[in-house]
Every structure is written in structure tokens, then in C-alpha cells.
Design a protein around this nucleic acid. Structure first.
Lengths: 190, 190
DNA sequence: GTCTATAGTGCGATAGAC
DNA sequence: GTCTATCGCACTATAGAC
């Protein structure tokens, strides 16, 4: 779970100033949505002016893309780690527990951002996104392309990502949530 | 599944013109997000001007609220139907299959709208939302308030809502998706 | 790398004619 | 109920001083 600079990752190296902006956007996007977050909000969050933000990124779209790729990179690291496993069963367990960790770690953040219409639009023709998704699909489903496997896998991923921000679990602490999620996810996998 | 004017529902009666605006917003919000959808887009979608839209709703917020309440009303109808069941097991099955129907019927629409930060903010102090949620919780969990039951229920609801718009199932037809979803959801319930 | 200042655009919302 | 026209404002983005 340490920070990994995965081989297949193409995210350009980010300066410290750029990372601060990405962090601010990461905090504001889930609360207001991507479209509802202005550069003024990001600048205010960092205690600087809009012009200082524009010195790091030429457009708002570049910031959105950087945030999306940063989140995608976290998922890619989990997938890459699982691909290195010795058996398929062990790989499946690694990817599920990695995604549980990711989801619990960010709770509201990750899922909200990745499901924002603007981000979805950015990923619609993003080759790295398709690459990670097909590797994830291969890890979880193997060569089974039947309706059963696809619905089952989609439900599993949606259940993990969506449950962490559900009102029913807001007052559970991270450890309890992580343990229950992993246990139920493994049971669902069968 | 017919249109139901549920007893507990407080949504004000809507004129035909208002319903057309709600329909346009319902189509545009998932694609651009609530903040990313302007009144100009809604007006263009209907072939009228902004002023005509403002004649039906005084503010954009009123339109957003109307859309949110319309979606909530669909869920409330499912909950009310299940509450009328003779046994608890039958009620649970009714609520799960009702939510599956809802999710498949709208695919991208409902979940995207209900998870939009602006809508979430509107529901944050919306008494009807809390009422429907607690009734849903009672139907699915009974008096069990343990971490296991809460995580399990949150996963079930998130799995159904989230799976319908997952890339893995985009090319499945509605009937197949509905059948598989219901079967797997019942299996997960145990 | 940060600032002030500003250009240009689209937004939500209103007034008043038909 | 829809229109044209407009107001005031916040937005993205840029120019140029420090």
C-alpha cells in the first residue's frame, strides 16, 4: 500500500506546488462537484490568488485531468500489485482487499470524484482508464464473459465503492468498516 | 410499479409545464452534473427561452429540489409498497426487487443524480429523505443495528444502484441485467 | 512564484411587451 | 405562457509588476 510509481503509469511528474493544488481540488470536488468548484475556491483553500494557480496549470481542465489521473494511478497500483501474485485466487484476493483499502482510506472522496460526470467524460476516451479497467476485469473475471460474471463483478466493485459513503455506515470507524467490507466481499466472491 | 401518489408524499402537485422542465433536467443532470447544467441548457432542450422556464420555477434551486423530490418519491413508493406486505421476508423481497426495477429502469440517471453533491446537500436536512431512509433501513435490517447488518445493507443498496451504470454491464440488455441483479441480490441477502 | 488588475464570457435572475 | 432585452455578478483566463 506504499506509494508506488507503477511501470505502466504515464502521469507526468508533479511539482510540490502542483501536488498542493491537486490536494485542494481533491478536497473540494466531492463537496461541490467538479463544475461547482471554481479556481477561486481552490486558490482560497490554499491561501493564494487565482493567478498563482494558473502559473501551475494552464486551464481548469488540466487540474481536473491531473486529479482524475492521480486517483486512477492509485487503482492502477493495486491492479499492478495483484498481477504480480503467484496464483489467480491470491490475485483476486489482493485486488479486492486493495480496493477495500482504497475505498475506506478516502471514504467520500474517491467514489464521488470518479463518478462525477465531468471526470466520467474525461475518461471516456482515456486509454489508461481502459487499460486499467480491462486488467481489473481480467483479474476478477478471467476469461468468463457471461452476463452472470459481469453483473457479479460490477456489483462487487459498486458495493465496495458505494458502501463506504452510505448513510447507514457513517458512524462506523475505519477499522470496523474495512474488516466487515472485506469479509462480506469475500463471501460474495464465493 | 404504476405511478403512485403515496400517502406520506408531500411533493406539491406539478403542472404539465413543470413536469416537462423536470424531465429535461432529469436528462441533463446525469450528463453534465447539476452545477454543470445551466438554465439555458434546460431551455434549449425544451425549445423555449430561459424566461419561460423562470415562469414555472422562481430559481434554479427550486428545479433541483423538484427533481430530487421526484426521484425520492419513486423510492418512497417502493418502500410504501413493501411495508404493506404480509410478512417481513416478503417485504424484504419486495423492496429489493423494487429497487432493482428502479435502478434498471433509469440506468445512468437515478444513481448519478442522487449522488450529485448538490442533491446530497439538499437532502442533508430534508425530513422526507430521512423518513424514507429510516423506513428502508427498518425493512432491510429490522432491529439489528450491528456493524455487520449495516455494512451488508449498505453494500446491497450500493451494489444494485452502482452496478447498473458500471462499464462491465453497458452492453447487457435491461431484462438480462434485471434478472441477474435480482438473483445475485437475493443470494447476497441469504 | 506570487501579486494586482482586467478582459471577455456565460451565469442566474428580472422587467415588460405580446 | 412565451418572448426580447437587460442587469449585475462570478467565472475562466491573461498581462505585466515585483
Amino acid at each position: 500500500m506504499a506509494s508506488v510509481n507503477a511501470v505502466g503509469s504515464k502521469s507526468p511528474a508533479r511539482s510540490a506546488a502542483q501536488l498542493r493544488i491537486i490536494g485542494a481540488a481533491l478536497a473540494l470536488f466531492p463537496e461541490h462537484g467538479v463544475s461547482g468548484t471554481s479556481l477561486q475556491m481552490i486558490a482560497d483553500h490554499l491561501g493564494v490568488t487565482k493567478a498563482a494557480v494558473y502559473h501551475q496549470f494552464n486551464t481548469k481542465d488540466e487540474i481536473v485531468l491531473a486529479v482524475a489521473e492521480a486517483e486512477l494511478a492509485r487503482l492502477e497500483a493495486v491492479v499492478a500489485g495483484a498481477e504480480a501474485a503467484s496464483t489467480q485466487a491470491r490475485a483476486r484476493l489482493l485486488v479486492v482487499s486493495g480496493i477495500v483499502d482504497l475505498a475506506v482510506d478516502s471514504r467520500r472522496t474517491t467514489t464521488t470524484i470518479l463518478s462525477d460526470p465531468v471526470i466520467v467524460g474525461f475518461f471516456a476516451d482515456h486509454h489508461t482508464f481502459f487499460d486499467v479497467m480491462s486488467r481489473l476485469r481480467r483479474l476478477l473475471m478471467g476469461d468468463d464473459v457471461g452476463a452472470d460474471a459481469r453483473v457479479r463483478t460490477a456489483m462487487l466493485l459498486a458495493a465496495i465503492s458505494g458502501a463506504v459513503m452510505h448513510p447507514f455506515v457513517v458512524d462506523l470507524d475505519d477499522d470496523t468498516l474495512r474488516t466487515e467490507l472485506l469479509r462480506l466481499a469475500r463471501r460474495f466472491l464465493g
